[in-house]
């Protein structure tokens, strides 16, 4: 178990900087997610930490050791790809034994260690299968078992759940979180899915065009984004005008609705009402305003507003976060 530290890490491909002067500290045992749209440089950053690529500038430390010039083999990192990257010509067990064999661990010791890892990912009994005989979720678990079996210093996950369907993804998110907690391994996950990032991580790092936008705990980043990009990327954002020409963010959950004509609210009309189970999401046109519709997410308790109805919209001043 080790911490990770990036200092001014930069990777250029010609004039394009895929990673631009990135600093990051991940504490021992912490679960940090790098979040960004495709092309933001998050996978580049991961491959730099894994040692599959060399940075143009900057230093990378793992467990206090400068590994900037070390090869992937020397870093003792567990890496899981979105494509699983299982060895198709080996059985599940052989796949999991592979990193142990490389470390000259063999025989019964290696076997019991591998079976234990498979048990952790709930794959016991399938060790004789080939990857092609497994479902996507099972393959991802093999990849996970292979990445943790040799007790790596850190675990890197590159969109590990991206190829799975929604239900399975949510199921595995829970397992992944539990597994990480059990092992206590420092984990860095890359994803473009903000829900995944918010639900799994101790902290998230938002990346755009190779530049760090914000590093913060999920709730903080969601409610107090460092800029407009983070605000929009992490969820639905209502932007409201503030004094002095500034802009403020109000999240839909913080918008309140009341019957039309009630004092203290602005009159508005419901454009659309979308039922989401426990919540209803409303798109609202504020009367006398030319701006974008306001989105409100309100718990569903017996009655919902219909499209065309007049309502009063309000929010607390404390729920407004100024953005730039």
């Amino acid at each position: 178990m080790s911490d990770i530290r990036l200092e001014g890490v930069t990777k250029r491909y010609g004039p394009v900087a895929a990673a631009d002067d990135v600093d990051l500290s991940v504490a021992q045992g912490e679960f940090v997610t790098i979040l960004g749209p495709s092309g933001s440089g998050k996978t580049t950053l991961l491959s730099l930490i894994a040692g599959l690529n060399r940075p143009t500038a900057g230093r990378i430390f793992i467990g206090g050791r400068d590994v900037t010039e070390a090869t992937a083999q020397e870093r003792n990192i567990g890496l899981v790809f979105q494509s699983y990257a299982l060895f198709p010509h080996m059985t599940v067990l052989e796949n999991v034994l592979f990193p142990l064999g490389v470390r000259k661990i063999g025989g019964a010791a290696a076997r019991s260690q591998a079976l234990e890892a498979l048990k952790l990912v709930r794959l016991d009994g399938l060790e004789g299968r080939r990857p092609s005989q497994l479902s996507g979720g099972q393959q991802q678990r093999v990849a996970l078992a292979r990445a943790i079996v040799f007790k790596p210093d850190i675990l890197l996950l590159d969109e590990p759940l991206g190829a799975l369907d929604r239900k399975l993804r949510e199921e595995l998110q829970v397992e992944l979180k539990q597994l990480q907690r059990t092992l206590g391994v420092t984990t860095l996950l890359v994803t473009h899915d903000q829900e995944e990032a918010l639900s799994l991580s101790d902290r998230i790092m938002v990346l755009n065009h190779g530049k760090t936008q914000q590093v913060a705990a999920p709730a903080e980043a969601y409610l107090k984004p460092a800029n407009r990009f983070v605000a929009e990327f992490l969820g639905i954002a209502n932007f409201v005008g503030l004094d002095g020409g500034r802009t403020g963010l109000v999240r839909p959950e913080r918008v309140r609705l009341g019957p039309g004509g009630v004092n203290g609210g602005r009159p508005a009309r419901v454009i659309e009402a979308i039922y989401l189970g426990q919540m209803v999401r409303y798109h609202l046109a504020i009367e006398g305003s030319e701006g974008a519709p306001i989105v409100a997410a309100v718990p569903f308790v017996g009655r919902a507003w219909q499209a065309g109805e007049s309502v009063a919209v309000s929010w607390d001043a404390a729920d407004i976060w100024p953005v730039t």
Partner: peptide
């Protein structure tokens, strides 16, 4: 052959010959 297989092997600690 997916390049990531070789990258995965490298990340698992295998030297080029292996």
């Amino acid at each position: 052959i997916d390049d990531r297989l070789m990258q995965a092997a490298a990340s698992l600690g295998a030297p080029p010959r292996t």
